[in-house]
Write a protein that binds this DNA or RNA. Structure first.
Lengths: 233, 233, 233, 233
DNA sequence: CATGAATGAGCTTTCATTCAT
DNA sequence: GATGAATGAAAGCTCATTCAT
């Protein structure tokens, strides 16, 4: 180290730390809020608790988010924005079979969303959609729709290439979506209650689901099943 | 009993009516509470609103349920009572292919649970499991486990008979369960927000899911998929 | 007293008392709020304090008034509505000189408003008008305008009859209004500070003002007024 | 002082500028505070807003005033400082009739106080006197009393010279004071609400009031009214 | 039994005030 | 001196719960 004033260095250091702290505040608060909202639900989470978990006081929270509801919105936005542009690009260049592409999609979702805290948002939205119609619409527009579109493209690719049986694409995406979203929600509710028999091993779950779904989608030489009329004889 | 006193009869009648009304109270309250809890969540539902929808006063609610939490527990318990004994019997006698049996199970679930208000408790439990661990355990014991067992028997029957490919039964049940429970939850959250593109037509959804699942489970002459390496290039 | 069940009497009595209390609540709260708002201003008055002075709990206040602002509005309405219809009628039938009529008006204002707690509203409105534009408009419409109109009629009567010099009526009313409203405001602010020399004896004040105003309005060279009897017909 | 060092001059200059700025700070803060207190009242004015309007940070405000209350006191004190010595001198030398002197007094008040921001403190004191008794006493001592004395001298001059009718001087001053103070308060409250019919044109108002007051005070050939005792016989 | 007026703990939100930089 | 991020006491308002009727 060359000649330098140690006092100035300390001062600069502290200032830097302070500014880093200031910049980090919203992130820390959003992280704490995500955790607590997912754990306890929106209404059952007290603002003070979020602040405490983020290591700040009650007042500080409202310095960064003008209301608890605004905090909620910010949590949702923070954890979903911009992922889809990245994903779309990834998919444009995918080389390989459509089955592999679907497998890849599912694994990627799990690694980037499902296995992270962001998966809690799915449960959050399910629980609170009724109380935040505006946010629900936002979520539909920013998350559901892009996700649907992404999956539809994968399925369509498979149908066009002859790998998959033709199917109603709109409802076909739910064949893939439903098991994934269910896993996310389960993880954050009944799956984390500690009761015996409630735990789901995600990797195994995904493997079984993926295999079955792919066989269900695949084009077969012979049709699988005869149809059934209404329930009851 | 021989000739009866008409006055006594009237009195008994009146008493019976009053008792019936008295006995009906909790039911009306539970029905109102179920609706509201499902619509708005536990915390966002006010006790007074439940009372009003049940046509009684606030005080009366607390006459029958010592607290809002007790009311919640009663709502859940009320709506998951022993349907499974009936179902088990039904399944013991089922005649037909296992594919038909699975189809029948799914349709039966939809008609008796999924399409009724009872489906709301699925969403409720997902939302509130964290705040009511005791209830979650109860739900797991009374609903999840029996449901799992039921479905496992169906799958096992198909595997044993050679209709279905062998599969991990524990996770196989989720292949059927996940899409159904997802539908129930969707219906009560994002699906009822009025936003365009969020509605799911249950019958169509069930048809597509069932077809795909059955083809995924069915024993095939040729294996379905090649395996995949790790995610990423 | 004839034969009567003492228990029933007590019960009826208590119920009556309870209902009387319920009916009295809003009035008690309004009275307490008026006092405190005038004493300390709107913002410096805590809702709990109002409740305490009315002998009820914080929650009860919000049972009757949905917000502190609503309470404020109710206080203003309570203390001014309907007085002007009565006053207008009184003035239509007034017999006597216009000087006497003006004297009577001033005395009547003092006895019915100025000397009562209602006079505090004047000060309240002056202090809070800027923060409650909606209320200020309400006050202008319900109080200021009717009061102005009333006074204008008195002045006009005097001018028409030749008792008063012709004058700009719009600004003429302030010749009477200003000293009266000033008295009301003074009473509730600097006049009640206990500082020596700040007290104003209202009767004397009114006498001096009235005499001077009447001489100022009177048509000269003829003398202005004969004496007046007690207020009231 | 003879030849001066230019460097010293510059240094002194800079220091003077800085000190001027430093000395100006409190003044800018007081000006901002006066405006805001008058507009919105003491309680509804936030310290941060005062600071912002003065172009400094929140912390700086508390560097100069130890609390919001101290700021308030300083605002009042600042705006009522010794104008009266100047005025007294002016009045000692006044040449002309007492009517002219009174006219002059009123116009002077309007030009130097009433039409300036200083008139706002009249309203401020009225609104907050109850919460700041110490200030109220101060105000009474520094403003009300001297103002009263000044006016009393004018009236007395007129009475002695035979221009004015004899009158109770203590209450006579309010004949002049009340309309003026009322105008000041009106201007800062209901008069600035934008509601139609609330605006008062000060010049016209003053003209009408002054004319009426002077005629009310003037000595007439025949006395106007003898009454003085309490109302009623 | 049923009622609903009353309660007060508890929550969100505000803002004067402090103090490390 | 000046700053503004941080604080936490305090206020408005809600609502589960009680209890006199």
């Amino acid at each position: 180290m060359p000649a330098s004033c140690p006092i100035c260095e300390i001062a600069a250091n502290v200032r830097a730390k302070r500014e880093r702290r200031k910049d980090a505040r919203p992130g820390e608060l959003l992280a704490a809020a995500l955790e607590l909202f997912v754990e306890k639900g929106f209404a059952a989470t007290r603002a003070e608790e979020v602040a405490k978990r983020a290591g700040v006081s009650k007042g500080t929270l409202f310095l960064y988010f003008s209301s608890k509801e605004e905090l909620f919105k910010a949590v949702v936005r923070e954890n979903i924005s911009g992922r889809f542009t990245e994903w779309n690009a990834e998919f444009d260049n995918f080389q390989g079979s459509s089955a592999d592409m679907l497998r890849y999609s599912i694994r990627a979702w799990w690694e980037r969303i499902g296995s992270t805290k962001a998966s809690g948002i799915t449960k959050l939205m399910m629980s609170e959609a009724g109380n935040f119609p505006e946010l629900a619409a936002f979520y539909q527009h920013e998350v559901i729709q892009p996700g649907n579109d992404l999956l539809r493209r994968v399925l369509q690719r498979g149908v066009v290439s002859g790998e998959f049986e033709p199917l109603d694409l709109k409802y076909g995406v739910y064949v893939v979506l439903a098991p994934m979203l269910f896993l996310a929600m389960w993880k954050h509710s009944l799956g984390s209650c500690g009761a015996a028999g409630m735990e789901i091993d995600p990797d195994h779950y995904i493997t079984v689901q993926t295999d079955t779904i792919l066989r269900g989608l695949a084009k077969h030489p012979a049709p699988a099943s005869t149809n059934l009329g209404p329930v009851g004889p």
